[in-house]
């Protein structure tokens, strides 16, 4: 049976919604329809996809205006004569058709201080109790589809907030590490407030609504983090208690300058090799390098000398 679709086609220079009549069979999902479109009417339709099982987080798109995973949206959830509109996610710059440049999220991830191992415990000797690590584990379910980042109105409707605001995905990372029983950093609350822009969130819960992994982003990560920030920043009783009991002098806390922690890796992402026209080749065979670009950059040979590694040990003054 043929159904009516409207798919956004274009790139950063502009584009529009195009109409298609596509065959739909029983049991199919929206991503199947995109694939049928590519196989029949629009061979150059660009779309990111990978696992078709809702675990890789690649096929984020907006289906009838709602941020969804293409592979997890069943066609049977629409009425038979319903027009289905498919657009790229809006918050990030479009590369082409349904593919967007989500590097904003990776930049924010790099800025988040990494797990700081406890001092005096060698790797391999880490021991945790299940009840202690349980809360952090919920956030490990994240598949980084960035639907929460896309739907968050703080950056979706206000692009100017992007430098100051890291988004729900970064907040669950911050909460995961702050609740982690073995993480030894104590300034994550200050960091979340000062550098991640936790205060911008007005808890309207859209991130939780769109999460395909059903992580309780707002209730279990953002609100607990806000409350933890209140402990440190906005609670006059706590402030008074700390002053009177002189706890603020007892605690060996890192200097305030470390609040805006340097990125854990100084290297910017390497971009793919491009031809003289500034575009990548469409066929791998004709490209100068086969396969995707190395995440370490294409100019590296292995093994890397230890002094060139980009790992910042948290105990050694955080110098690269």
């Amino acid at each position: 049976m043929k159904r009516h679709f409207r798919v956004w086609r274009g790139d950063a220079g502009g584009g529009d919604l195009r109409d298609f009549e596509v065959e739909v069979n029983e049991g199919e999902v929206v991503l199947d329809i995109i694939h049928r479109l590519q196989a029949t009417q629009a061979p150059d339709l660009a779309c990111r996809w990978n696992c078709k099982a809702g675990k890789c987080g690649s096929c984020s798109m907006e289906i009838n205006g709602k941020p969804r995973l293409g592979c997890m949206t069943r066609m049977s959830t629409f009425a038979e004569n319903e027009l289905i509109t498919i657009t790229p996610i809006r918050t990030f710059p479009v590369i082409r058709d349904l593919v967007t440049d989500v590097s904003f999220n990776y930049e924010k991830a790099r800025e988040t201080p990494a797990f700081a191992p406890p001092s005096g415990v060698a790797p391999g000797d880490y021991r945790m109790q299940q009840v202690d690590v349980e809360r952090s584990q919920e956030f490990r379910k994240c598949i980084e589809c960035f639907l929460c980042q896309n739907t968050c109105h703080v950056i979706r409707d206000h692009d100017e907030n992007k430098p100051a605001f890291s988004g729900p995905r970064s907040f669950i990372r911050a909460a995961e590490l702050d609740m982690h029983p073995l993480d030894s950093r104590s300034d994550r609350k200050e960091y979340a407030q000062a550098s991640q822009g936790l205060g911008y969130c007005n808890i309207t819960k859209c991130c939780t609504e769109v999460c395909p992994e059903h992580i309780q982003i707002t209730d279990n990560a953002i609100i607990p983090m806000k409350e933890r920030v209140v402990d440190r920043r906005y609670d006059p009783l706590v402030w008074l208690g700390r002053k009177i009991l002189r706890r603020d002098q007892l605690e060996t806390r890192p200097a305030p300058s470390s609040v805006a922690a340097p990125p854990s890796s100084a290297r910017l992402p390497a971009s793919a090799a491009v031809g003289p026209d500034g575009h990548m080749d469409i066929a791998e065979l004709t490209a100068p390098l086969q396969g995707g670009p190395s995440p370490f950059g294409d100019d590296l040979t292995f093994p890397i000398a230890p002094e060139e590694l980009l790992y910042n040990h948290p105990d050694k003054g955080n110098k690269p």
Binding site: W8, G10, D11, A12, G13, G14, G15, D16, L17, A46, E62, N64, G65, K66, T85, T87, P88, R90, T91, F92, P93, V94, I95, R96, V99, T100, D101, S103, D159, P269, S271, A272, V274, G275, D277, G278, H279, M280, D281, I282
Partner: peptide, 22 residues
């Protein structure tokens, strides 16, 4: 050719006229 390479190209969002498509 494929479109602009990631990170290096334009930073414009997709030009979608409707304020919401819900």
């Amino acid at each position: 050719t494929t479109a602009t390479k990631p990170g290096g190209g334009g930073k414009a969002r997709a030009a979608i006229a409707a304020r919401t498509l819900r």
